[in-house]
Design a binder for these strands. Structure first.
Lengths: 340, 340
DNA sequence: TTGTATGCGTTATCAT
DNA sequence: ATGATAACGCATACAA
């Protein structure tokens, strides 16, 4: 048996409650007994039993991070992972533990519901893909603290969430391309179903409108979820009567496909066609040519989410809050401008 | 206040202990009362309080996964992340929760020590980089279940660990290159300090010896931690009197640098020089040419680690065990063979 | 400033 | 097969 608060009390000759009080600083204790107790704790190698502590407090001091189970790759997504790192850091700094769980179903009850009902965590962070109407309703009904990672499809104004400013990201990207002399800008996306994809399209279209360009839709291409398709799509685009002279991509793999396709048909980047992409993947600076990117600060994303959630946990009527994090352009060679 | 075991007992007209027994199946209960209790639990929307449960059992039903804090990129390492996903899956299947923590120091006491002393987890998984002599000693002294992810530098035989067969991985890679007609095989590594790097060198050298090649060291190049250096290193290698005709790389970014360097000096891959790398990064199949790789099954790595740890937790005198997971070659164009 | 007593929800031991 | 009761380690309301 490990040494407990009682052992310390007995050793020092005080009541267990006094020991508890010095541990928590929850009352004024004479310096003298405080010293004696502290000394005894060290000597006897005492460590508070968090199981008992949590039980007595009715709190887990843990926050749950939900991972989208439908996607094996969530964990290999470099961007998501920067967020996880940030979350872990913030959570730990605040004395909480980070518990990671998949939202796969055990039987009828999802593991997320279990976390909530069985008091395994004090609050949860969930990706927008896991923010189903059913789960949101459940959480709100139980007044359970939660925050969504990424703008949700529903209840945008009645929930707390953090997201990257995807709309502004593509808007500034397009404007940068215009500035560097590109005129007809295409946009190749992995798919258009997600909220963030829609926001990116929105920003893209806004920039085009401001420039007075009408034929927007022709330049928006969807890979249908298969990034490999970007290769053929690029070649087709360039074959068009009104071929684009710049291509914005929704991620690095697509951008790589685009670069390869352009090379194959002897179109020079950036001299003939500029290429730009979202997400500053490690590879992007080594590409040929190095890629200009819309950099997304996923560390801050996670940081904000965790900070906000902890505030909510510690203050039940903390108001819902939506945070939108600015993107940043990293300009490299692939958008240097046309030569002619 | 949430409904407790007592409420159920009162409602049904039995003792709390009886309710507890049906929840845990820890004794034979008449079908009749069992039914009544189950019914009441559903009706009253009862959920066991895991805080109380853990406290009573003296168990957290959580396992800790330690992340190497010194490396911001741990979380963006796609390979490590596949392991995390596997660990999470196994852990959850066994009714445990996964708690993630950085091993950064709070004050004098590391957060890992806290996990152990304060009974926040029942066992831990730690990367070999975190397996310091001090920590190992502490864990063994407290008879605390743990398993190391990656062959540790110390106490190889007195600890449980899982690793990929790095030695065999490079050995088979080199043999594959020989088979496809390449004769002089170089090896470019990020650095040679880690255990896994040493193992890879070992396997490489073994394959060379079997072939009867002596001048091994000349062909082993170290990037000194900076992958960009692979570019210059490659050009230098090819400038050598006895230039290699194949290059094995320790990761994809290095391989990409090598491909670029070869292109710049007009050396064809795979016709003049074969290129091969460790780790099947998402990009590798899209490279020009698509890269042959030594694929490392990091999912199984994590799976094994978690499975083993849980066995140890549930059976205190489960013996130490070292698991070495085989690698697999994925052959693509970059090692197709020389034309002349 | 400190001690006493009680409770948190569950499990386990000992009865019956 | 089931009930009564103690115990887990800590926190806190109330007393002193």
């Amino acid at each position: 048996m490990a040494v407990t608060i009682k052992d310390i009390a007995k050793q020092v000759g005080v009541a267990p409650s006094t020991v508890s009080r010095v541990i928590n600083g929850s009352a004024v204790i004479s310096q003298e007994t405080k010293d004696k107790i502290m000394k005894a704790m060290v000597e006897m190698d005492y460590h508070p039993n968090s199981l008992a502590r949590n039980f007595a407090n009715g709190s887990t001091y843990a926050i749950g991070l939900v991972i989208d189970a439908s996607d094996d790759n969530t964990f290999s997504n470099a961007f998501f992972n920067r967020s996880v790192y940030a979350i872990e850091t913030v959570v730990q700094e605040n004395g909480y533990n980070l518990l990671i769980t998949n939202d796969r179903d055990d039987d009828k009850r999802s593991s997320v519901e279990k976390l909530v009902f069985e008091k395994k965590v004090d609050g949860i962070i969930l990706p927008s893909s896991s923010a189903t109407p059913k789960l949101i309703r459940l959480l709100k009904k139980n007044n359970f603290p939660f925050i969504i990672l990424g703008e949700p499809e529903i209840e945008k104004n009645e929930t707390s969430w953090v997201d990257v400013n995807n709309a502004l990201g593509s808007e500034t990207a397009v404007k940068h391309l215009y500035q560097n002399g590109y005129q007809k800008i295409a946009f190749i996306l992995e798919n258009r179903t997600t909220v963030f994809a829609k926001n990116r399209v929105e920003g893209y279209e806004k920039a085009l409108e401001e420039k007075g360009c009408g034929e927007k839709e022709d330049y928006i291409k969807d890979c249908g979820g298969k990034v490999e398709n970007a290769f053929e799509i690029t070649k087709e685009l360039l074959r068009q009567a009104n071929a684009p002279d710049a291509i914005l991509c929704s991620n690095n793999v697509i951008a790589y496909q685009v670069l390869c396709a352009l090379k194959e048909i002897n179109v020079s980047t950036p001299n003939d066609v500029g290429v730009m992409t979202f997400d500053n993947y490690p590879f992007s600076e080594y590409m040929d040519p190095p890629l200009s990117v819309v950099d997304v600060d996923t560390f801050r994303l996670g940081e904000q989410a965790a900070t906000n959630l902890i505030k909510k946990i510690q203050n039940a009527d903390y108001e819902n809050q939506q945070t939108i994090i600015a993107t940043k352009l990293i300009i490299r060679e692939s958008t240097k401008g046309k030569t002619k």
